[in-house]
Protein backbone atom coordinates (compact mmCIF):
# COMPACT_ATOMS: atom_id res chain seq x y z
CA UNK A 1 0.00 0.00 0.00
CA UNK A 2 1.19 3.52 -0.83
CA UNK A 3 2.34 5.61 2.10
CA UNK A 4 1.09 9.13 2.66
CA UNK A 5 3.46 11.93 1.77
CA UNK A 6 3.18 15.64 1.09
CA UNK A 7 5.78 17.27 -1.11
CA UNK A 8 6.14 21.06 -1.06
CA UNK A 9 8.28 22.15 -4.02
CA UNK A 10 11.37 24.31 -3.57
CA UNK A 11 9.82 27.19 -5.55
CA UNK A 12 6.70 27.24 -3.33
CA UNK A 13 5.51 30.67 -2.19
CA UNK A 14 2.33 32.47 -1.25
CA UNK A 15 1.50 36.15 -1.73
CA UNK A 16 -1.56 38.28 -1.07
CA UNK A 17 -1.56 40.39 -4.24
CA UNK A 18 1.96 41.74 -4.57
CA UNK A 19 2.80 41.22 -0.88
CA UNK A 20 4.83 38.09 -0.35
CA UNK A 21 3.71 36.27 2.82
CA UNK A 22 6.25 33.46 2.74
CA UNK A 23 8.40 31.36 0.45
CA UNK A 24 10.71 28.39 0.93
CA UNK A 25 14.02 29.56 2.38
CA UNK A 26 16.66 30.04 -0.28
CA UNK A 27 19.01 27.10 -0.42
CA UNK A 28 16.39 24.77 1.10
CA UNK A 29 15.27 21.87 -1.06
CA UNK A 30 11.65 20.87 -1.28
CA UNK A 31 9.95 20.15 2.06
CA UNK A 32 8.63 16.64 2.45
CA UNK A 33 6.10 15.71 5.11
CA UNK A 34 6.31 11.98 5.71
CA UNK A 35 3.75 9.62 7.20
CA UNK A 36 3.96 8.68 10.85
CA UNK A 37 5.44 12.09 11.73
CA UNK A 38 4.17 15.17 13.54
CA UNK A 39 5.19 18.56 12.11
CA UNK A 40 4.93 21.70 14.20
CA UNK A 41 4.71 25.15 12.64
CA UNK A 42 6.25 27.94 14.59
CA UNK A 43 6.28 31.66 13.91
CA UNK A 44 5.14 35.04 15.17
CA UNK A 45 1.66 36.51 14.87
CA UNK A 46 0.63 37.29 11.31
CA UNK A 47 3.56 35.41 9.73
CA UNK A 48 1.17 33.16 7.78
CA UNK A 49 0.87 29.98 9.85
CA UNK A 50 -2.89 29.64 9.36
CA UNK A 51 -2.51 30.61 5.68
CA UNK A 52 -0.03 27.77 5.29
CA UNK A 53 -2.57 25.43 6.87
CA UNK A 54 -5.22 26.75 4.47
CA UNK A 55 -2.98 25.79 1.56
CA UNK A 56 -2.50 22.30 2.98
CA UNK A 57 -6.28 22.16 3.41
CA UNK A 58 -6.61 23.17 -0.30
CA UNK A 59 -8.66 26.24 0.67
CA UNK A 60 -5.95 28.41 -0.89
CA UNK A 61 -3.63 27.82 -3.82
CA UNK A 62 0.10 28.46 -3.75
CA UNK A 63 1.19 31.53 -5.73
CA UNK A 64 4.22 29.72 -7.11
CA UNK A 65 5.32 26.13 -6.87
CA UNK A 66 3.13 23.19 -5.94
CA UNK A 67 2.09 20.91 -3.13
CA UNK A 68 1.83 17.25 -4.11
CA UNK A 69 -0.38 15.08 -1.94
CA UNK A 70 0.14 11.34 -2.08
CA UNK A 71 -2.43 9.40 -0.12
CA UNK A 72 -3.16 5.67 -0.24
CA UNK A 73 -6.38 6.36 -2.13
CA UNK A 74 -5.66 9.63 -3.87
CA UNK A 75 -2.94 11.64 -5.60
CA UNK A 76 -3.25 15.34 -6.16
CA UNK A 77 -0.99 18.15 -7.31
CA UNK A 78 -2.11 21.42 -5.79
CA UNK A 79 -0.80 24.23 -7.99
CA UNK A 80 -1.72 27.80 -8.64
CA UNK A 81 -3.74 26.90 -11.72
CA UNK A 82 -5.58 23.90 -10.32
CA UNK A 83 -9.00 23.92 -8.76
CA UNK A 84 -9.62 23.17 -5.12
CA UNK A 85 -10.33 19.48 -4.79
CA UNK A 86 -13.12 18.53 -2.42
CA UNK A 87 -12.66 14.89 -3.51
CA UNK A 88 -9.12 15.02 -2.21
CA UNK A 89 -10.35 16.13 1.19
CA UNK A 90 -12.92 13.30 1.31
CA UNK A 91 -11.77 11.26 4.24
CA UNK A 92 -8.09 12.17 3.71
CA UNK A 93 -7.82 15.56 5.40
CA UNK A 94 -9.43 16.77 8.62
CA UNK A 95 -8.81 19.95 10.52
CA UNK A 96 -9.21 21.29 14.01
CA UNK A 97 -9.89 24.97 13.35
CA UNK A 98 -8.53 27.85 15.44
CA UNK A 99 -12.12 28.57 16.46
CA UNK A 100 -13.84 25.23 17.00
CA UNK A 101 -16.58 24.79 14.42
CA UNK A 102 -19.30 22.50 15.71
CA UNK A 103 -22.88 22.02 14.59
CA UNK A 104 -25.01 23.26 17.47
CA UNK A 105 -28.15 21.49 16.23
CA UNK A 106 -26.50 18.08 16.63
CA UNK A 107 -25.55 16.51 19.93
CA UNK A 108 -21.91 15.76 20.74
CA UNK A 109 -22.06 12.17 19.51
CA UNK A 110 -23.46 13.18 16.12
CA UNK A 111 -20.92 15.99 15.83
CA UNK A 112 -18.19 13.38 16.01
CA UNK A 113 -19.85 10.62 14.00
CA UNK A 114 -20.63 12.88 11.05
CA UNK A 115 -16.95 13.74 10.56
CA UNK A 116 -16.25 10.38 8.92
CA UNK A 117 -17.78 10.34 5.47
CA UNK A 118 -19.80 7.20 4.71
CA UNK A 119 -20.76 7.82 1.10
CA UNK A 120 -23.04 4.78 0.95
CA UNK A 121 -25.23 6.15 3.75
CA UNK A 122 -25.16 9.67 2.39
CA UNK A 123 -27.14 8.90 -0.75
CA UNK A 124 -30.32 10.96 -0.97
CA UNK A 125 -32.33 7.88 -1.94
CA UNK A 126 -31.52 6.38 1.46
CA UNK A 127 -33.85 8.94 3.02
CA UNK A 128 -36.75 6.92 1.57
CA UNK A 129 -35.59 3.69 3.21
CA UNK A 130 -37.13 2.98 6.58
CA UNK A 131 -35.09 1.89 9.61
CA UNK A 132 -31.80 3.53 8.62
CA UNK A 133 -30.74 4.20 12.22
CA UNK A 134 -26.98 3.84 12.61
CA UNK A 135 -25.52 1.77 15.45
CA UNK A 136 -23.44 3.56 18.08
CA UNK A 137 -19.74 3.42 17.25
CA UNK A 138 -17.67 2.05 20.13
CA UNK A 139 -14.65 4.15 19.10
CA UNK A 140 -16.66 7.36 19.48
CA UNK A 141 -17.92 6.23 22.88
CA UNK A 142 -14.33 5.46 23.94
CA UNK A 143 -13.14 8.92 22.83
CA UNK A 144 -16.08 10.60 24.57
CA UNK A 145 -15.32 8.68 27.72
CA UNK A 146 -11.77 10.08 27.75
CA UNK A 147 -13.27 13.54 28.15
CA UNK A 148 -16.08 12.38 30.46
CA UNK A 149 -18.88 12.98 27.98
CA UNK A 150 -21.81 10.68 27.29
CA UNK A 151 -22.49 11.94 23.79
CA UNK A 152 -26.03 13.15 24.47
CA UNK A 153 -24.92 16.58 25.65
CA UNK A 154 -26.32 19.63 23.91
CA UNK A 155 -23.48 21.12 21.82
CA UNK A 156 -24.84 24.66 22.09
CA UNK A 157 -24.36 24.71 25.87
CA UNK A 158 -20.70 23.61 25.88
CA UNK A 159 -17.96 25.92 27.17
CA UNK A 160 -15.26 27.11 24.77
CA UNK A 161 -12.75 24.61 26.19
CA UNK A 162 -15.23 21.74 25.86
CA UNK A 163 -15.93 22.72 22.25
CA UNK A 164 -12.19 22.55 21.61
CA UNK A 165 -12.03 19.07 23.10
CA UNK A 166 -14.89 17.90 20.84
CA UNK A 167 -13.15 19.44 17.80
CA UNK A 168 -10.04 17.42 18.71
CA UNK A 169 -12.09 14.24 19.15
CA UNK A 170 -13.59 14.81 15.68
CA UNK A 171 -10.12 14.78 14.13
CA UNK A 172 -9.06 11.78 16.21
CA UNK A 173 -12.11 9.80 15.09
CA UNK A 174 -11.73 10.74 11.44
CA UNK A 175 -9.04 8.34 10.19
CA UNK A 176 -7.65 11.23 8.12
CA UNK A 177 -4.25 10.81 6.50
CA UNK A 178 -3.46 14.46 7.08
CA UNK A 179 -4.58 15.97 10.39
CA UNK A 180 -4.31 19.75 10.46
CA UNK A 181 -4.41 21.23 13.95
CA UNK A 182 -4.63 24.98 14.42
CA UNK A 183 -3.88 25.74 18.08
CA UNK A 184 -5.82 22.65 19.17
CA UNK A 185 -4.89 22.80 22.86
CA UNK A 186 -5.83 26.41 23.63
CA UNK A 187 -8.22 26.72 26.60
CA UNK A 188 -7.94 23.03 27.46
CA UNK A 189 -6.94 21.76 30.91
CA UNK A 190 -3.35 20.42 30.92
CA UNK A 191 -4.40 16.92 32.03
CA UNK A 192 -6.67 16.69 29.03
CA UNK A 193 -3.92 18.06 26.77
CA UNK A 194 -1.77 15.12 27.86
CA UNK A 195 -4.55 12.65 27.00
CA UNK A 196 -5.12 14.25 23.60
CA UNK A 197 -1.42 14.27 22.74
CA UNK A 198 -1.21 10.56 23.57
CA UNK A 199 -4.23 9.81 21.40
CA UNK A 200 -2.82 11.81 18.48
CA UNK A 201 0.53 10.04 18.76
CA UNK A 202 -1.25 6.67 18.81
CA UNK A 203 -3.32 7.62 15.79
CA UNK A 204 -0.32 8.78 13.74
CA UNK A 205 1.44 5.46 14.31
CA UNK A 206 -1.69 3.33 13.87
CA UNK A 207 -2.85 5.01 10.65
CA UNK A 208 0.55 5.98 9.31
CA UNK A 209 -0.78 9.49 8.94
CA UNK A 210 0.69 13.00 9.13
CA UNK A 211 -0.05 15.74 11.67
CA UNK A 212 0.67 19.39 10.99
CA UNK A 213 0.15 21.54 14.07
CA UNK A 214 0.27 25.25 14.78
CA UNK A 215 0.83 25.96 18.45
CA UNK A 216 1.95 29.12 20.23
CA UNK A 217 2.96 27.29 23.40
CA UNK A 218 6.57 26.34 22.76
CA UNK A 219 6.58 23.54 25.35
CA UNK A 220 3.48 21.96 23.83
CA UNK A 221 5.01 22.19 20.39
CA UNK A 222 8.43 20.77 21.23
CA UNK A 223 6.95 17.98 23.38
CA UNK A 224 4.64 16.96 20.61
CA UNK A 225 6.26 17.61 17.23
CA UNK A 226 8.94 15.47 15.61
CA UNK A 227 10.03 18.28 13.32
CA UNK A 228 9.46 22.02 13.27
CA UNK A 229 8.70 24.20 10.25
CA UNK A 230 9.54 27.79 11.05
CA UNK A 231 8.18 30.84 9.30
CA UNK A 232 10.60 33.59 10.03
CA UNK A 233 11.25 36.73 8.04
CA UNK A 234 8.91 35.48 5.27
CA UNK A 235 10.99 32.33 4.90
CA UNK A 236 9.72 28.81 5.43
CA UNK A 237 12.22 26.20 6.57
CA UNK A 238 12.20 22.74 8.08
CA UNK A 239 14.40 21.66 10.98
CA UNK A 240 14.44 18.70 13.41
Amino acid sequence: MKESRIDISADFSFSYGKNLLFKIREGQNNIVLNCGRIYGIYGGNGCGKTTFLNILNTFLKPTTGKVTFTFPTYNYVHENDTITASELIGNNIRRCFQTPLLVDELNIYDNISIVKRLLKNENFLNTFALGMNEKKDSEILRLLDLAHFTGNEDTATLSYGQRRIIANLQVLYSDAQLMILDEPFANIHHDMIGVLKQEYRKKVIQNNSIIVIVEHNKTNLHDFADEIITIDNKQLSLRD
Partner: peptide
Protein backbone atom coordinates in the same frame (compact mmCIF):
# COMPACT_ATOMS: atom_id res chain seq x y z
CA UNK B 1 -27.03 15.60 9.59
CA UNK B 2 -24.91 16.57 6.60
CA UNK B 3 -27.41 19.27 5.74
CA UNK B 4 -27.12 20.55 9.31
CA UNK B 5 -23.36 20.90 8.75
CA UNK B 6 -23.87 22.73 5.44
CA UNK B 7 -26.42 25.07 6.98
CA UNK B 8 -24.29 25.79 10.04
CA UNK B 9 -20.93 26.37 8.39
CA UNK B 10 -20.04 26.12 4.72
CA UNK B 11 -16.35 26.20 5.66
CA UNK B 12 -16.77 23.20 7.94
CA UNK B 13 -18.74 21.36 5.25
CA UNK B 14 -16.04 22.11 2.71
CA UNK B 15 -13.28 21.05 5.08
CA UNK B 16 -14.97 17.66 5.35
CA UNK B 17 -15.06 17.34 1.58
CA UNK B 18 -18.83 17.82 1.33
Amino acid sequence: KLHSVMRDSEILAFSWGI
